[in-house]
Amino acid sequence: MEEKRILNIILKVKQGEIHAFNEIIVLYEKQVFNLALRIIKNREDAEEVAQDSFVKAYKRIKSFKGNSKFSTWLYRITYNNSLNKITSNKRLGFSEELADEKIGGSLLDDGMKDLLLEERKGFIKKALAKMSSQESTLITLYYQNECDLKEIEEITGINRNTAKVQLHRARKRLELNLKMLLKSEIESLR
């Protein structure tokens, strides 16, 4: 996504073109939902947090000054909303549940190549679900949302150097989780 294009959309929204915000939703809905899901680990709550994040972003769009990338600002809202949702759920007595990880797509129509890609995605999702919220959040922000360490610091409040170390550890844990999942999958085929 081109930051200049985003800034033009934001300008339109600030000038009262409400429908222009739909473009922002379309551009970021997947990343916002995935970030919330990595933190909360519950699909329904993540959907709610994603919606709330876009509502808050819309209401606060005039406060966006452009000092950071818009995506960083939006992910920070999502990150905070996710943490608030976890706190709220704990206060209400709900336990954190792992999201049902289903392999999406029409497998019969897409062929073997797509099946393998979906299986990989499924294994990665399962491996991420076994990690702490902070570890999976760092992986999601860095690899999926393509945030650099400075942006991660702005979003999470975690010092850049600490985030770098935690990201390294999270990658190692992800690798270990994937190895364990694949090993059990291979053993189940025997």
Rank of each mutant, 00 (worst) to 15 (best):
Q134D: 14
Q134L: 14
S132M: 04
R5V: 15
K14G: 03
V32G: 09
D148L: 10
I9E: 06
A46R: 06
K102S: 05
D100M: 02
R120F: 10
E2K: 09
D148M: 06
K62P: 00
R171A: 09
C147T: 07
D109N: 14
G157Q: 09
N161H: 07
A46G: 03
F33M: 00
L108N: 04
M112I: 14
L138W: 03
I139Y: 08
E23W: 02
N89R: 10
L27P: 03
D148H: 12
D114R: 10
G16R: 01
V165F: 11
L107A: 08
L116F: 15
V165C: 03
A163V: 01
N34R: 13
G104D: 13
E47Y: 01
I139W: 05
R91E: 02
K56E: 12
L141W: 06
G16F: 11
K65P: 00
L74G: 07
I10S: 04
A57F: 00
R120A: 14
D109Q: 14
K172G: 05
N22F: 08
F70G: 10
S63A: 12
E187G: 04
R60K: 12
E151I: 03
E47F: 01
L167C: 07
Q31F: 12
L149N: 08
L37V: 10
D110M: 14
K90P: 00
H19W: 09
D45K: 11
F123M: 11
R43T: 07
D45T: 06
K62D: 14
Q51P: 02
K65S: 13
V32E: 01
E44I: 09
I39T: 08
E154M: 10
E47R: 11
I158G: 04
N8Q: 14
K62N: 07
K150V: 12
V165K: 13
E3Q: 15
E135W: 06
R91Y: 11
K179I: 15
G122H: 06
D110I: 11
A36K: 01
L176N: 13
S133L: 04
I61K: 07
T140M: 14
R169V: 07
D109M: 11
L98K: 13
I152R: 04
G105F: 09
A99P: 15
I25E: 06
I86T: 01
D52R: 12
N81E: 08
I25S: 05
G66A: 10
L176C: 02
K164H: 11
L7S: 12
L149K: 00
I18Y: 09
R91M: 00
L141G: 03
G157K: 08
